[in-house]
Design a protein around this nucleic acid. Structure first.
Lengths: 244, 244
DNA sequence: TGTTCATCTTGAACGTGTTCAGAAATCGGA
DNA sequence: TCCGATTTCTGAACACGTTCAAGATGAACA
């Protein structure tokens, strides 16, 4: 009976598409179309009414299927948000790569990355609060959960390339953890942005601009031989948290 | 009909106790006893089964009342956790004051504060994840919500006194924001502790010890005239976030 | 004692996310 | 074209948090 939607493997958009010739593949894309219809209906309702006010019954009705069908494609209501998150990561990746090659100035590069993400998520800002309201690593929608691991790691890799491309001279022991640290930093900014109710999220904009300068300044400072003991202390904290 | 449990004023333990002589007061403490019975039953079930697995029906049954009665005393399931949080803050306050006068060493003082809280919350560690799983300031149970404001502000005041009692020389512009900054720092540690699955939460223990040294070291560093520009930059970030 | 009235209590009912037994649709192969 | 198998879909049913109209309780007063 139930075969599709599992907890970890929620959305397999590109699955089975390639094997139309091989095994079990009917009218190409029929199933995928339904799934996309449900996803689209859900996202529209989420944006219109908010995550909680949009019920699974409404979503299914809007997608012209029965309630149960939604659960055939998505393991849970949360999983729909997760699918959106994955789609977002995919759609942004090309743009992000462009941003990386645009400049060797780390500050500008980080600013560009953040600009891309905020611009992309702008229409879904409130929806994201459903995704990022949780800090519990056990919650599927947490940015720190197992379910979001793949997206997270790919995202961290982007920061890794940003660091590589930049001309900044860095302390050697900082090079390995820095991508993940920068990712955490941007996660904090995005979290703040989601809940920022100032006009046009001006506060977040200010925070990004100012904090980027601080971050880059700290990076330069930390490269000084004088700062080595403190840097080691801070990196020890990172080691504890990152669990190595 | 419904008069009790409102959203902001969830638990009025000490309400109406004083006016037994004045107006409407029956068998003294009857109502309070019921409320406490519900709270106690809830906490026991929360600890036994976890917040989500303990249903309001179970809680009411364990307290020997109908389901609706629980909602007469508590506006929601969350509100019960909130009541627990308030009770905890009350019960810890005396101990915290003691810790403050115990030493003039800021590091030891902060360590003592954290020790008291972790020790108190130890049996309810998992329950706290229901309280602290949210970073959304709009969520009642968020440490940053309006509903938890009073507890938060009182708690920040504790850190204020800790700073005052300490002999550390601090930059003048740091004195005002420092208590809140320290509170945020401890909140981060507690958050980490809640989700720390290492044996006996050893990682949190290590993190507290090491990070406290870093914090104190940074405070000393920040007092140096050389560090003034960077300190100003960081304080600007604080101003943006704290919304002034 | 009987009446009044706020306080307290009840349990059925609502809307929610989710499950599931089975029906319908569609496939590959005879 | 028909058959068995697989995928896709249905809608009633479940357990949950929560609401609410109605009832029960008991103190204060006549």
């Amino acid at each position: 009976m139930r075969k599709r939607a599992s907890d970890t493997e929620v959305l397999n958009v590109s699955d089975e598409i390639g094997k139309s010739g091989g095994g079990i593949a009917r009218e190409v894309g029929k199933s995928e179309a339904t799934q996309q219809r449900i996803l689209a209906a859900a996202l529209q309702l989420f944006r219109e009414r908010g995550f909680e006010a949009a019920t699974m019954r409404d979503i299914a009705a809007a997608a012209k299927v029965a309630t149960g069908a939604a659960y055939y494609y998505f393991a849970s209501k949360d999983a729909i948000v997760l699918a959106f998150y994955r789609q977002a990561a995919d759609e942004m990746s090309a743009e992000l790569e462009n941003a990386l090659t645009g400049t060797t100035d780390l500050r500008k590069c980080l600013a560009a990355i953040l600009e891309i993400k905020l611009h992309y998520f702008e229409p879904s800002r409130r929806l994201l609060s459903a995704l990022a309201a949780h800090v519990d690593p056990a919650h599927p929608l947490s940015p720190f959960s197992e379910q979001t691991r793949e997206i997270r790691e790919r995202d961290i890799a982007v920061f890794g390339r940003a660091v590589d491309h930049s001309g900044s001279r860095l302390a050697d022991d900082l090079k390995a953890p820095l991508p993940r640290l920068l990712w955490m930093y941007q996660m904090g900014l995005i979290l703040y942005w989601i809940h920022d109710e100032s006009a046009a999220q001006a506060k977040t904009r200010a925070l990004i601009d100012r904090s980027l300068r601080v971050v880059v300044r700290l990076l330069k400072l930390s490269a000084l031989p004088l700062m080595r003991p403190l840097r080691r202390q801070v990196l020890d904290l990172y080691k504890i948290v990152s669990g190595s």
